[in-house]
């Protein structure tokens, strides 16, 4: 038996969330007294896959079928199921991403496995029970869930595990052929459209996020948000009212019905902090709120706050970050 880790790659690089997943899988394998094997999906290079050794992965399986470059639900499911059978994997670990949730839920049926998504720490495995802690109620609670199936699938919440880097360790990259047929690619995407990423930082994966609300007064003022984000190397985000009036695109909207983020640092500028917004950000490790209204409810959820005008405060913060060098 072994632990199988699903590693998502994009443009040759292993995604940050997958480095976290690889770390999680390797630590879990050590806990269970076995080894962690990875199966890579997406566009990868052998050199970058070998570097998964730094996260504690011993072997990486990679199917070079070119149609696997883009996400194809059926093909990915079959690929991973085939790898799980070959490796006799009792636990499969993947990212709680759109790909991970799509594939993980299908795999759980195909492999008759217990599935837990949104998992935030390593499982407790003593006493013959396998219990994972996961986020629930839109970040307002956690639940300990017992996985009773013989096989388990765990989708790890982004940014809840810190990726390890043990320099110099390499994984063996092994060619893998899942014998996929044309039928497996019937739901392949016709077209893939990538967004313009301001500063190149992907919001769902970002460790630092600068976010603006209606207090920014209009899209023409977003340079203040972008300047601070750029200085920090952060992604930009916005509240629902801002995306509703098209000041910013929908994919930047964080909140109950938008993207859920859990960065190390979330800086909210001119956002009052409605409960639906908090649901999307409340698992951030540190929250900073800048608002001219001292009664803004967001201050109750914040670690640091500045009561002041965003138009005055933001340039000062950007300058202070630049001064850090």
């Amino acid at each position: 038996m072994s632990v199988l880790v699903v590693v998502e790659c994009d443009k040759g690089e292993v995604k940050k969330s997958s480095l976290e997943v690889a770390t999680y899988g390797a630590q879990l394998a050590a806990q269970l007294g076995t080894s962690a094997t990875a199966i890579a999906v997406g566009e990868a290079t052998d050199a970058n896959l070998a570097k998964l050794g730094e996260q504690g992965i011993s072997k990486v399986l990679y199917d070079k079928e070119p149609r696997l470059k883009d996400f194809v639900n059926n093909a990915y499911t079959k690929l991973i199921a085939t790898a799980a059978q070959q490796e006799d994997a009792k636990v499969i670990v993947l990212a709680n991403s759109n790909i991970g949730a799509s594939v993980g839920s299908r795999l759980s049926i195909r492999l008759q496995a217990s599935l837990a998504t949104n998992v935030v720490e390593l499982p407790k495995t003593d006493g013959g029970q396998f219990t994972v802690k996961r986020g629930a109620f839109s970040g307002k609670a956690f639940s300990d869930v017992v996985l009773s199936g013989e096989r388990k699938i765990i989708a790890v919440k982004k940014n809840s595990i810190e990726a390890q880097h043990e320099a110099g360790k390499t994984a063996e990259v092994v060619a893998f052929a899942a014998q996929l047929t044309d039928a497996d690619f019937a739901d392949a995407p016709k077209q893939v459209v990538m967004q313009d990423q301001a500063g190149g930082v992907l919001l769902p994966e970002a460790a630092l996020v600068v976010s603006g609300g209606r207090g920014m007064k209009g899209p023409e003022n977003w340079n203040l948000i972008e300047d601070l984000a750029k200085a920090l190397g952060a992604a930009t985000a916005c509240s629902k009212p801002v995306s509703d009036v098209d000041w910013r695109p929908h994919h930047e909207h964080v909140g109950q019905t938008g993207i859920t983020v859990s960065p190390n640092l979330y800086i909210a500028c001119g956002i009052s902090g409605a409960i639906q917004h908090l649901a999307g950000v409340n698992s951030s490790k540190v929250i900073v709120v800048i608002n001219k209204d001292p009664e803004a409810p967001f201050f109750k959820a914040a670690d640091y706050g500045i009561v002041g005008d965003v138009f005055d405060v933001l340039p000062k913060l950007t300058a202070a970050v630049k001064a850090l060098g």
Binding site: S108, A113, S114, L115, A116, T131, A136, G139, K140, A141, F142, S143, D144, V145, V146, L147, S148, G149, N282, S283, V288, V289, F299, K300, A301, A302, D303, Y304, G305, I306, V307, G308, D309, D312, V313, K316, L317, A319, A320, V321, A323, L324
Partner: peptide, 30 residues
């Protein structure tokens, strides 16, 4: 069912907000 909830828990309470004076905003970055 293939999973059972053993227990729910609420997240740890925040310590409370530390306010920084707007005139001295750079202090926040430190």
């Amino acid at each position: 069912a293939r999973t059972t909830v053993a227990e729910f828990a609420l997240p740890p309470k925040k310590q409370g907000v530390k306010l920084i004076d707007a005139d001295n905003a750079g202090e926040l970055i430190k």
